[in-house]
């Protein structure tokens, strides 16, 4: 496939529009040149790490991590420790493993059920959303078809209408279709990520040069085959980004399930944690802030794992796509 790439000298030194960027990219991408570059030490492409820059960027890091430190520290406390000790430091005794155990077994292990529900919603919802967004974004970027411009306008216009007010109409619709209180009520709306569509559109316009597609067509490749063998690898960094966003969005989806799902057996984690939180606000209810905090920490862990797992595709996708590492 790479053999059919047109080979030419690098493009102009200061490309400004999208066209210049695209053509120059198409020109450079062979795996051989990449391998050669990797050995170069400390060129502008492989600069030496800079301590001052790291320190300045470190400020952003403190900003994002300090609140999370609170979460980790407090996941080691029991209910009494939470009430008695300073928030940003550990209590006298640590209950971390005990908390995890109790979170997983509280109320007959309902947390595990919620976790499995969430996994289902994420796999079906975010997976589906990514597929739809990649296909749609690719179509918008590379094909000229009637109504193409309208798609952009309509999607943007629809996204601009606040979802909170659409919740009731959506509920009434879904209720008539018999979908409320079933996983479908969460999964179907999750399938749409307007932002994902735009991101893929922008990425596809940048990352998939029309020349490449035309070359493939001349080689006799069908549209689907072209998409899977040429476009998809080039779109990998964007796909991974959209997948990550959709996963987090589905993982943290709260408002829609709140309206659609009344049966705790179908709750996602967020609704479950919220139900635990509401317990503290109920006459006769049990305050379980310790379990909420530990549960939240457990909720974030899979997201981090997925992030670490997916991030290598930013690199490998690029290997196929002719860029730097």
């Amino acid at each position: 496939m790479t053999t059919s790439l047109p080979t030419a000298a690098p493009g102009s030194t200061e490309p400004v529009g999208r066209t210049a960027a695209a053509s120059s990219r198409a020109a450079s991408g062979t795996t051989t040149s990449k391998r050669r570059e990797r050995r170069l030490p400390h060129t502008p492409l492989h600069p030496r790490p800079s301590l001052p820059l790291t320190l300045v960027a470190g400020l952003v890091l403190v900003y994002t991590l300090l609140p999370l430190a609170w979460l980790v520290i407090n996941a080691t406390k029991d209910q009494n420790g939470l009430l008695d000790s300073f928030g940003l430091w550990f209590a006298d005794d640590t209950h971390f493993w005990d908390n995890i155990g109790r979170t997983l077994t509280y109320d007959d292990g309902v947390f595990v059920r919620w976790l499995l529900n969430t996994l289902l919603y994420v796999a079906a919802g975010a997976g589906g959303a990514t597929v739809l967004a990649v296909l749609g974004g690719y179509a918008l970027a590379t094909y000229d078809f009637p109504g193409r411009k309208a798609v952009f306008a309509v999607v943007l216009g629809a996204v601009a209408v606040p979802g909170t007010a659409l919740a009731v109409p959506t509920f009434l619709m879904f209720s008539n279709m018999g979908l409320t209180n079933t996983p479908w009520a969460v999964i179907i709306p999750s399938l749409i990520s307007p932002f994902g569509l735009y991101l893929m559109w922008v990425f596809a316009a940048e990352a998939v040069p029309t020349e490449l597609l035309e070359a493939a067509r001349i080689d006799g490749s069908g549209e689907l085959r072209t998409f899977f063998t040429i476009a998809l690898p080039l779109l990998m960094p964007g796909t991974v980004t959209v997948l990550l966003f959709s996963m987090v969005a589905t993982w943290n989806n709260y408002f829609l399930p709140l309206i659609m799902i009344k049966d705790p057996d179908w709750y996602p984690l967020t609704l479950g944690l919220n139900a635990w939180n509401a317990q503290a606000q109920t006459a006769g209810g049990q305050a379980v802030f310790d379990l909420i905090i530990t549960g939240s920490l457990l909720t974030i862990v899979p997201i981090v794992a997925v992030f670490l797992l997916l991030q290598r595709y930013w690199q490998s996708g690029l290997a196929a796509g002719s860029v730097k590492e």
Partner: peptide, 22 residues
């Protein structure tokens, strides 16, 4: 030019993964 850029990437992204209740 950052030391530990993977760490930066994850750490800065993390808050987005925190559920609203939390």
């Amino acid at each position: 030019r950052l030391y530990g850029k993977t760490f930066f990437r994850v750490a800065i992204f993390l808050p987005y993964a925190v559920p609203a209740v939390v």
